[in-house]
Design a binder for these strands. Structure first.
Lengths: 338, 338
DNA sequence: CCGTTCCGTCGAAGCGCTTCGGCTGGACGG
DNA sequence: CCGTCCAGCCGAAGCGCTTCGACGGAACGG
């Protein structure tokens, strides 16, 4: 293998000079740097990651703990991962994968100095990992919003605001009864933080706007979606607008409405809370509030990098604000329309 | 940080003894080993991964290159990843993630000695990565079956056999016209190996069984599935049985058949080629040929480990055989039924 | 009873890199 | 003209681990 010494010899300098030339941590003359760079290119030199980690106490690697829970939408998850890996590479870092179910995964990665920082996906309201992560030497970023972050940085979508935005938008159009097609019951039972915040925002805004709010927790199946739509339309005050936060069920909801002969948006308005890609791949355009998963992943990486730069810094929580993209699936309710 | 020297001191032995006690590479007395293990536990010792990699030229890390292509089903992909990560951990290895689009991702991981071996997902028929991977010092396992594996190990599902099995099963029931709801056109245009093998197997068995075969490449949308079903049912010789290899479209196909008033399996038989989990989450039970993604991932890891043990060994290709699970969505065609 | 063998342990030499202190020579000010 | 300073480079000391050769002592055979 090509070592730094080979490069040094070829460039006619000391190994330390090569190191400094490449890292830029000390001033090096233009001439020398060029010689070093040429030698690197000619020999195809690549620093040994382990050696570097040993000497510098930095691994240039981020640990990523991904969930293996049911009800977690894989599309959204992949978006997170994509955002994280891509942004990490831009900081010259790599990503090491651990799964949720591994016993001491966190401790193994950090104790073994395999990673500089950790990103935990899908953090629940009372997640046991938070306490453990807070005890580690390495900075940890949580994707999600636990009840008690214990001094850790968090980043997430502002589901509360998203739900309020959706309801306000619909209420402003004149709707007086709004239905929420929510996540599967299992997700809520786990006290997943985002689901609870979504519901909270929904209920709060419903009250503020003085409209009726109906909630259906919906399994991501045809039958589940059908049942939810049926339940809502059979209510004493059937909603004229639907907020859907359930990627997997969304197509079925659209389908079910069509089967019910309910036109969108003439009879029923529809707002989805999902990644743009999902909304755009529906059989008809659906107005949506973008769930910026890729961005959240990227932000998580940025926060990790920040903490690595400057050890100080109080725990920060960043909630990305909702943006509604109108694609024509919302309109005033039938009886208000001209 | 707790080092091997701390452990040695506490156990009253030399550092090298600790190393041997933990690795088992030399015989160590029972008494000493216990003392070492106790010291390790008491101090919470975890070997520094970088130091270990440097000294032993082994990283205990596998590189995994995941695709970011369109038309790749994320559910199946996650299954692969799950299988890989889980099995890797059983071999005491970790998994480092790279994305397809990174320029010299392979070379970076291997040149920097970050990984012991590499697993490439979603390898196409003429994949440019194969040539590059073949040139690396580290063993590489391909998931997929390129036209020329160039001496690399491959593992994949036997799509050819799966398609033949499906057709044979249906032909044996008496069906004389069989439709294939295939992957999106984009997948085939990329010359994705699995899609081509599936089609090949389908056409071959159709011929052998002396039945009519119709193929519809199908986008994973409601509209796409609807169009495919319509096209098939509008054919001069409408198929009385459908083979579906398109996870995303499967629910829509079921839906479309119901809308057409075609009973399953009374009017139309249905066989899906998909992971068991997908088949079982449909609105009605669907007979399926299991696409054992998790297993394939696990096998890929095993092959990598094999190659790490014994450097020799000719290039091996393992194709996992298809197994049909009857869930009652197939039956003889209408005119044959009693 | 002594030589051989083997088991269990130790010491030391790296693995390839970073980093700190030190050295040099030229620029600069007085 | 000499002292000072600094940019630019070198040398060496580790980082924490594995591994190889060596060594002491117990066990064993002749």
């Amino acid at each position: 293998m090509v070592t730094i010494e080979d490069v040094a010899r070829r460039a006619g300098v000391a190994p330390s000079t090569v190191s400094y030339a490449l890292s830029g941590k000390r001033s090096i003359s233009e001439r020398t740097r060029e010689r070093v760079e040429r030698a690197v290119a000619e020999l195809g030199y690549r620093p040994h990651a382990g050696a570097r980690a040993l000497a510098s106490a930095r691994t240039s690697t981020l640990g990523l703990m991904i969930p293996l829970r049911q009800g977690v939408d894989v599309n959204v998850m992949m978006q997170f991962v994509l955002g994280i890996v891509t942004r990490a590479r831009e900081f010259d870092h790599d990503v090491l994968l651990v799964t949720q179910d591994e016993d001491a995964g966190l401790e193994r990665l950090t104790g073994g100095r395999m990673v500089d920082a950790l990103i935990l996906m899908d953090v629940e309201a009372a997640d046991p990992r938070v306490g453990r992560a807070a005890r580690l030497a390495q900075p940890t970023i949580l994707i999600g919003l636990p009840d008690d972050p214990q001094g850790l940085h968090c980043v997430d979508f502002d589901f509360d605001a998203a739900a309020r935005l959706a309801v306000r938008h619909l209420a402003d159009l004149g709707h007086t009864s709004i239905g929420l097609v929510g996540p599967p019951p299992a997700v809520l039972e786990r006290h997943t933080s985002f689901a609870e915040r979504l519901l909270h925002g929904f209920r709060e805004q419903v009250e503020r706007s003085g409209v009726t709010g109906l909630v259906e927790l919906t399994p991501p199946t045809h039958a589940g979606a059908l049942a939810a739509v049926e339940a809502l339309r059979g209510a004493s005050e059937p909603p004229t607008a639907l907020v859907v936060h359930n990627e997997a069920a969304l197509p079925w909801v659209v389908d079910a409405l069509q089967m019910h002969g309910a036109g969108i948006p003439t009879d029923v308005s529809l707002v989805a809370i999902c990644p743009a890609a999902v909304a755009q791949s529906q059989s008809r355009p659906v107005s949506f509030i973008d769930l910026p998963a890729t961005t959240i992943g990227a932000v998580a990486v940025e926060m990790a990098m920040d903490r690595l730069e400057e050890q100080g810094g109080a725990a920060e929580t960043r909630l990305l604000g909702p943006v509604l993209v109108d694609q024509g699936s919302t309109a005033p309710p039938p009886h208000v329309s001209p």
